[in-house]
Design a protein around this nucleic acid. Sequence first.
DNA 1: AATATACTTGACTAAAATAGTCGGGTATAT
DNA 2: ATATACCCGACTATTTTAGTCAAGTATATT
Lengths: 141, 141
Amino acid sequence: MKLSNKGRYAVMALADLAKFESNKPISLRDISLRQGISLLYLEQIFLKLKKNKIVVSARGINGGYSLNKEANEIKISDVLNAVDEKVKTIGCSKDSKKGCNGKLAKCITHNLWDELELHINDFFNKKNLGDLIKGKNENTI
Amino acid sequence: MKLSNKGRYAVMALADLAKFESNKPISLRDISLRQGISLLYLEQIFLKLKKNKIVVSARGINGGYSLNKEANEIKISDVLNAVDEKVKTIGCSKDSKKGCNGKLAKCITHNLWDELELHINDFFNKKNLGDLIKGKNENTI
DNA sequence: AATATACTTGACTAAAATAGTCGGGTATAT
DNA sequence: ATATACCCGACTATTTTAGTCAAGTATATT
C-alpha cells in the first residue's frame, strides 16, 4: 500500500513554482535542477497540469510555466487529480447496484474503505499550495 | 494511487471468521466460498496472520482457523501490518538525517505526506474487527 | 491402519501500475 | 537564423500485486 511518486513530484514542482514565482515564467530545466526530478518526467507531468489549467505555459526562449491562480487557491487535491492520482481505496465494485467480489451484496469492509477514501480526499481538499510554502525554511528544498 | 487488495482480503476474511465464529475452527474453504476469494490466496494470507498471532490454526479434518483474540481487540492496523500492508506515503528517504531526491534537505512536501500517513494510520488504529461486524446486516456478505 | 481433509511452505508466474526515456516535433525571444 | 523550451505520443524497464503450483505435514474419522 504505497502512494505513488508522480503526485508528489507534481506537488513539489508546483511548490517550487510558487516559491520562486516572479513576473517571468520558470523553466522546467530550473525546476528539474532544483528539485532533482528528471526533466523529461517533469514535461509529462506539466502537460497534464496545463491541460487542467493549474499552470500556464510560455514558449520559446525565456519561456516556462507560471501558476494559473494564487498558490493558496490551488488545492492539493486539484493537483493530484490533474495528474491522475485519484485515491482509490477499493478494488470491489464502486457501482452501488452491484456487490463486491462477484457477489450480490456489498462486502463487509466496503464502508471501511469508503470512509478512508473520504478521509484522505478531505485531507487533500483542505490543504493548498500556499500552506506548503508558508512553512518554508532553510531546511527545505 | 491505489490501496491494494491483499489487506482488504485479510480484513474480509477475518471479519468472516468473527461473524461465523463458534467453538469450532473455520476452514479456509468455507471462507473462500462465502467471500469469493481464491483459496490458494487465502492460504498465503493466513500464514502471515498466523505468524503475527492474529489467528490460531487447527490441522486435519475439521481443522481451520480461529481468532486469537476477541474481535474488538483486533485493530485493523494489526491486520494490515500482519500482511505487510503498511501505508507508505513517501518515496523520499524516511531517514531524517538524509534529504529527499538525493538532495541534502527535506523536500517541501515531506511533512505533507508524513501528516497524511499519520492520518491514515490513526484511522486504522481506531477501528477494530468488532466495529465491522457490529454493523452487519442482510445487505452485507 | 487408511484416508480424506485442511493447514504449511516456498517458489513460481502473470498482470498491472509506475517511473522514466526517446524521438521528433512547434513556437518564440533574441 | 538559432537556441531555448514547451509539446506530444509512443515506448521500455522496473516494481508491485495478485494469484497459482507443487509437494508436503498433521490429525480426526472410519
